[in-house]
């Protein structure tokens, strides 16, 4: 099993790198490329969300707002503090990471239900503040963020951001992969399975949850900040929306929260679907209905995501699969037992 998943991970990585490198050359026009960037943005945010959601099982509906905060912080640091674009981006992400500490303190001391409530509250508070504090944030008129590369043409600008986003996605995936295979990651998964039990086995669950929440907020803010630099115009209603936060959850869940590439797969599926809904339903509110129904279906029938569902299908199509797994384990064990035979008893 472990071998199979290792192959799947390497294969997925090769595929993803190829897609990231080739897409700008095959995209027929700048519109498609910019739509691709939107999907890539979702992939980064959803992967960042999955640091919390995937490892600990705590579901945050507020990550859309953390991204929005990253975007606004980046924009404001450029506009008001005169920082250079990418320095501002980094500083904003650190700032959001710091904001995550008191939020996490309130949200993570107790169990899941309070966490969800706080994550929703964060969105509503930030929306309130950024809409009302117009003198600083631009309020409902929005905030215009100067572009980092003023000399580039529009297609070149898209292309540059495609690669920036690709780098960020790679970084987030690498970090997730490292956590996944670490003792820290194992502790987080133990929290997901049974928090009391994890604590009783010596895992400092609160500290672990806190750390991973801050890491998640940091990457989320980087994604949001990059969006601000790319798009150049921020509106509180879109930056601080529960709906955008729920898209991230839907993506991760659909792709599979326990898989490295699950959120990326989900982002592609849902991102394309959202674009399709927008085109076919236009201004009506039916895109909300479609999102709601899709989310409901995933929760009811595919809570582990499509990737695991596919894996289960593959497994069923290869009936001898389970036998080989057991043989392998047994073989390993025999070696181990022989090695142990000397020093035990």
């Amino acid at each position: 099993m472990r071998n199979v998943s290792r192959w799947a991970t390497s294969g997925g990585a090769v595929l993803l790198v190829a897609a990231l490198l080739l897409f700008p050359s095959v995209a027929p026009n700048p519109y498609v490329l910019s739509a691709g960037i939107v999907v890539l943005n979702y992939a980064v945010l959803s992967t960042s969300w999955n640091f919390v959601g995937g490892f600990t099982g705590y579901i945050s509906l507020g990550h859309g707002a953390l991204a929005g905060l990253g975007g606004y912080a980046t924009g404001l640091l450029v506009v008001k503090a005169g920082l250079s674009s990418f320095l501002a981006l980094f500083a904003a992400a650190v700032l959001v990471g710091l904001v995550a500490v008191p939020v996490g303190f309130a949200a993570l001391r107790v169990r899941g239900a309070s966490f969800v409530i706080v994550s929703i509250a964060i969105v509503l508070i930030l929306l309130l503040v950024f809409q009302s504090w117009a003198s600083f944030t631009g309020g409902s008129r929005g905030l215009v963020v100067p572009r980092p590369f003023p000399d580039l043409s529009r297609p070149e600008h898209h292309r540059a951001f495609w690669y920036l986003y690709s780098g960020l996605l790679a970084l987030a995936l690498l970090a997730w992969w490292l956590v996944d295979r670490s003792r820290f990651g194992l502790g987080l998964k133990a929290v997901r399975e049974d928090e009391d039990k994890a604590e009783a086995l010596g895992t400092p669950t609160f500290a672990y949850k806190m750390i991973v929440f801050v890491v998640s907020a940091f990457f989320t803010a980087l994604g949001g900040g990059l969006y601000a630099l790319w798009f150049g115009d921020l509106d509180p209603v879109f930056q601080f929306s529960i709906l955008s936060g729920s898209y991230l959850v839907l993506m991760a869940l659909l792709g599979g929260v326990r898989n490295l590439f699950g959120p990326v797969v989900g982002a592609v599926v849902v991102g394309v679907a959202l674009e399709y809904f927008k085109v076919s339903f236009g201004d009506t509110q039916l895109h909300l209905v479609a999102t709601g129904v899709l989310l409901g279906l995933v929760v009811m029938f595919m809570p582990d995501g499509v990737l695991p569902a596919l894996a289960a299908l593959v497994k069923r199509l290869r009936p001898d699969d389970s036998a080989t797994i057991r043989e392998e384990t047994a073989e390993e064990l025999r070696d181990r037992r022989l090695a142990n035979a000397g020093d035990k008893r």
């Binding site: 295979r181 670490s182 820290f184 990651g185 502790g187 998964k189 994890a198 086995l201 010596g202």
Partner: peptide, 21 residues
């Protein structure tokens, strides 16, 4: 195996970033 590995032994926290396996 992971169930047993999830137990944190004394000093285990400082090595949290070590590979779990």
């Amino acid at each position: 195996l992971d169930n047993v590995l999830a137990a944190v032994r004394p000093g285990g926290i400082t090595r949290a970033l070590l590979g779990a396996r």
